[in-house]
Write a protein that binds this DNA or RNA. Structure first.
Lengths: 221, 221
DNA sequence: AAACATCTGGACGACTTCCTTCCGCTTAAT
DNA sequence: ATTAAGCGGAAGGAAGTCGTCCAGATGTTT
């Protein structure tokens, strides 16, 4: 999926482990965010920490690898969804309710300030993210123009709202933690539909807000 | 406000500091949750850690003190709101959009598994929480019966949703962090109103879900 | 105003958690 | 069979947090 852009070819078992690591990190990041101990990721991947560090010298490179992967998959998936749904609102809904990849992408690009800095700075990931944002823009715009979506929200509002609701609660019964996100997402989407729109306070979220990096974080570069 | 149920009377300065500490913890908990370093709380209160520990021998007792305070104030405030708004939906809205105390109450009782265990176990806080839940129940029930609220959600769904949306994002521009919660809350409330209700997947959240404590947490008692 | 008890701040040692390296052993590749 | 790459996980180290302790400050009482 992601062939690390290195010149040398990996030994078969090493390649296998590399993929396992990325897959494991993907899952663990989705649930607990990008700040989980490296050892936990290694355990989930069924390898030792040493192996993990051999492939990814630091957490940042792992986050980049997982991030680019997740974003690319979300992008592909979104394009498919759009191809299959001519109605922008339906497409938006389907996208919002789609699964793990989106969860990871949101975790990394919105929920964790730390990862956000890394993702935002990485040109390759940034490019994919921008494409995705453009698509989201046009979906929201189309939905608003055909009257299926309230017009007082920005596409960034939607992204933030998605992140908030998707994040979920921890320490609750297993079955709930699985069934809750689509349930609450659906309620939230109803709130975004055109209809009985209560005037919104505050201002829409902008791209500049999402690109905003606190000074303290910028120091780490 | 909260006179600590101790027999001995505190020295004037000590009493002042005690109140400062609770107030500071209240604020810090609201923004960063109940797991912030004790020293940060002390700093916010303008006292040394020693003073903090003198009043609250451990974090748990501080959480209880802040929790009971916040819950009581939310309860009082809610009763006032109900007195002033005969329409249940308006009351619900006003309550959801109310300020800092609710934020803390949600942080402690829903967002932090750790604090949830403490709050849930404490009989005194538990009692207030239950009263509050009863009120929420009747509000939701009334709103659903008079047709202003969708009928496929439980009052616990509402509580969870509130928590999720209120939590907000970190590391974004100051003004946004302040204006975002009411904005998103409003969208969410629109999603809860009766009208174009999309069928909800999953199951409603129950009180049992909220009382659920993971085994690992129960060990700490 | 003196004597006393209470309170205060914050330095400090204990502890925990997580990071990262390192190296003897294993395993794929040729 | 040989060799180089890869592996696991123990162990050293850095960072952060906890909670105690005590010399000095401050309020209280007589």
């Amino acid at each position: 999926m992601t062939d690390t852009t290195e010149g040398t070819r990996l030994r078969a078992d090493a390649q296998r482990n590399l993929e396992r690591i990325v897959a494991a990190a993907h899952e663990v990041f989705a649930e607990h965010g990008p700040d989980v101990p490296m050892e936990e990721i290694a355990r989930a991947a069924g390898v030792g920490v040493g192996t993990l560090y051999r492939r990814f010298p630091d957490r940042e490179s792992l986050i980049r690898a997982v991030g680019i992967n997740a974003f690319q998959r979300v992008l592909d998936n979104t394009r498919t969804i759009i191809r299959d749904n001519s109605d922008p609102w339906r497409a938006l809904t389907a996208m919002a309710l789609s699964t793990a990849d989106l969860q990871v992408a949101l975790q990394l690009s919105m929920l964790s300030p730390r990862a956000r800095v890394i993702i935002t700075r990485d040109p390759e990931t940034g490019k994919i993210r921008d494409e995705l944002m453009d698509i989201l823009d046009s979906l929201v715009d189309a939905a608003q123009r055909n009257g299926s979506m309230r017009t007082d929200v920005s596409s960034r509002d939607v992204a933030v709202l998605l992140s908030l609701v998707r994040r979920g609660l921890h320490g609750l019964p297993e079955d709930l933690m699985r069934s809750a996100p689509p349930r609450f997402l659906t309620i939230m989407l109803d709130g975004l539909r055109a209809g009985a729109d209560t005037p919104l306070p505050g201002r829409p979220v902008t791209q500049a807000d999402l690109d905003f990096l606190r000074r303290s974080d910028q120091a780490t570069g």
